[in-house]
Simulated assay, not measured.
Amino acid sequence: MMNLWIETLLDWIYPRRCLMCGRLLTVEERHICLPCLMDLPRTTFHLHPENLMEERFRGIFPLERTAALFLYEKGAAVCNIIYSLKYHDQPDIGVFFGRLLAWDILDSGFFEGIDCIIPVPLAPGRLRERGYNQAAMIARGVSSKTGIPVLETHLVRTRENPTQTRQSVRGRFENAERLFEVRHPEELAGKHVLLVDDVVTTGATIRACADALMACPDIRFSVLSLGCTY
């Protein structure tokens, strides 16, 4: 009762608003209001193995499954979720939506056989500036629901690279080439790794991660993200 009173008081002093529509949140709501939560443009990729995310990686690396929480379209309300996670110093958004994503697909068997979760590493300069890796926050949320361990040091970014935001499709792939390096590859040999990112667009970054991790014998992958573009 005391915690509820404190939360109500804090909401009065520092009003919390829905990331999508801006409506004031109730004490029970976190980051997104119930109507917007119900209206999320969910992908249901986990129920359809041959989905548009899977198409971006088919034949490129040993792929088991793909899933994303929502379809991501520039200018849509869901963009505010990713923007706030990355630029408004709110790492808890990643944890919250990582849990939501895991909860949504848990009963589908998506996580069966996955040995570990590896979030896409953030460039060192951006990590210092931001203070956290948004993909790692999502991964931690997924881990809290599934119990699958998160490995944040086995894949590292070897260099800074220009932002992908304004890159052409070709530019994104060239930008991501030889961008990552695997540490302790012997520990990942024969593992089923879940790669996690915030948004999958062309798939260039995920492909670069998998390319580096292919140094580990008999490794295979599944891919998970909050958003996926059309």
Rank of each mutant, 00 (worst) to 15 (best):
95 V>S: 12
97 F>V: 08
86 K>H: 01
130 R>T: 06
86 K>V: 09
122 L>R: 13
112 E>F: 11
91 P>F: 05
114 I>L: 14
126 R>C: 05
130 R>L: 09
131 G>L: 12
94 G>K: 10
130 R>M: 06
106 L>A: 14
105 I>D: 13
97 F>K: 00
133 N>K: 00
91 P>W: 02
118 I>L: 09
88 H>W: 07
123 A>E: 13
114 I>N: 08
130 R>H: 03
112 E>P: 05
100 L>G: 04
98 G>I: 00
95 V>I: 13
102 A>H: 08
117 I>Y: 07
96 F>D: 03
129 E>I: 00
92 D>W: 05
127 L>E: 14
130 R>E: 09
105 I>G: 09
93 I>M: 13
139 A>Q: 04
129 E>T: 06
135 A>S: 15
133 N>H: 11
121 P>C: 13
132 Y>P: 03
105 I>A: 09
89 D>C: 04
96 F>G: 00
133 N>G: 04
97 F>P: 11
102 A>W: 02
117 I>G: 05
127 L>G: 03
108 S>F: 03
121 P>R: 09
133 N>W: 03
116 C>Q: 10
134 Q>C: 07
113 G>D: 15
121 P>Q: 11
138 I>K: 04
97 F>C: 02
129 E>L: 06
99 R>S: 10
105 I>Q: 07
107 D>W: 14
123 A>D: 15
111 F>V: 10
89 D>G: 02
87 Y>Q: 00
88 H>E: 15
128 R>A: 14
110 F>I: 04
136 A>Y: 01
119 P>F: 09
108 S>W: 03
124 P>H: 06
139 A>H: 09
135 A>M: 05
122 L>Y: 07
86 K>P: 11
134 Q>E: 10
129 E>G: 01
111 F>N: 05
108 S>M: 05
104 D>E: 15
87 Y>S: 00
131 G>R: 10
119 P>W: 04
121 P>F: 04
90 Q>H: 10
121 P>W: 13
98 G>D: 11
93 I>W: 07
106 L>H: 13
120 V>G: 00
89 D>E: 15
97 F>M: 04
113 G>L: 06
100 L>D: 07
102 A>G: 04
133 N>T: 05
138 I>E: 09
125 G>A: 09
105 I>T: 12
113 G>W: 00
135 A>E: 02
127 L>W: 10
99 R>Q: 15
126 R>A: 15
92 D>L: 13
97 F>N: 07
88 H>F: 14
117 I>W: 02
127 L>T: 01
120 V>F: 02
119 P>C: 06
129 E>N: 00
110 F>Y: 13
119 P>N: 06
